[in-house]
């Protein structure tokens, strides 16, 4: 009897703690969504209101007026998709090389690659990277925003780890059937790796969609900028003095990855943990 009361109390305490913390964590996003659909009088009311009143979509239209937002959404999507595909291709190719082949220089090249594992070049090396991209004449182009990110040690590592778990028997069988290494790769290895590829895809997409400093620097014109950069532009826009509009832009910037996350949460979590470097 006493034990079960104790358990009930414990559950209630946990419930309260969990409800509070999930509300606290989610509140900023929720408030942004609420503010983005409220008229200025509501946004500027003091004390601030927490609950929405009606639907007011003017803010979104305004945000689209201040900057070429539709184009920026397109840019973000294009860049993210391109980077995601590129990383998957390069990552699985090089992962395949390291997982399934013994070749001269594999060890040393592995170190050369993995030395860069944690380096976000677009930040740590921003000045020289910008110089190189300028010299290619790539500033203000999609090239600048995608090509430097078409491969990463993380993706190679992830794919290599995964390919290693696939039994050698498959490869031997394929060889006996007369399949070339490339055929084995495309016909057997990749189909077997679908979940990990999907997981890597959403992680890469999120990373690319959320890039900030680099697109801000290489995009010279509004029509080449991305959604993340647009937020700050709208915040600093001469004509905007309304948080409703800023929050509308913010919601547009966070919605795609948030929806992706809500829809594929389990996959997200599984692959994220899988991508964590294991010794």
């Amino acid at each position: 009897m006493r034990k079960s009361t104790k358990r009930i109390i414990k559950t209630i305490v946990f419930e309260i703690l969990l409800i509070t913390s999930s509300l606290l964590m989610f509140a900023p996003i929720l408030l942004a969504i609420i503010m983005s659909i409220q008229p200025p009088e509501f946004v500027f009311s003091y004390p601030p209101r927490f609950l929405p009143r009606g639907l007011f979509l003017q803010n979104y239209l305004e945000a689209f007026k201040i900057v070429p937002f539709a184009r920026m959404i397109f840019n973000s999507a294009l860049i993210s998709i391109f980077i995601t595909l590129g990383k998957l291709v390069t990552g699985s190719l090089s992962g395949y090389a390291y997982a399934n082949f013994v070749f001269r220089g594999s060890k040393i090249s592995f170190y050369v690659l993995f030395a860069t594992l944690f380096i976000p070049a677009e930040i740590v090396l921003i000045v020289p990277l910008f110089r190189i991209v300028s010299r290619f004449g790539w500033t203000n182009t999609y090239w600048a925003m995608t090509v430097p990110f078409l491969a990463s040690a993380t993706n190679t590592f992830l794919m290599q780890q995964h390919f290693k778990t696939i039994p050698k028997d498959f490869e031997d069988a394929a060889k006996i059937d007369g399949a070339t290494p490339m055929q084995y790769f495309t016909k057997i290895l990749l189909p077997l790796s679908r979940p990990i590829i999907a997981g890597a895809a959403i992680i890469n997409f999120t990373y690319a969609w959320n890039m900030y400093l680099w697109p801000m620097i290489v995009a010279m014109e509004d029509r080449m900028k991305t959604v993340q950069v647009a937020i700050n532009m709208i915040m600093n826009a001469e004509s905007s003095n309304n948080w409703g509009i800023i929050m509308a832009a913010t919601v547009v910037a966070l919605l795609p990855t948030l929806i992706l996350f809500f829809a594929l949460q389990d996959l997200f979590v599984k692959s994220l943990v899988g991508s964590g470097v294991k010794g």
């Binding site: 910008f130 300028s134 004449g137 500033t139 203000n140 010279m220």
Partner: peptide, 12 residues
């Protein structure tokens, strides 16, 4: 200004 410098260096 920053972008002008980049454009000049790129020759455009």
């Amino acid at each position: 200004l920053a972008k002008l410098i980049a454009a000049v260096q790129a020759g455009t």
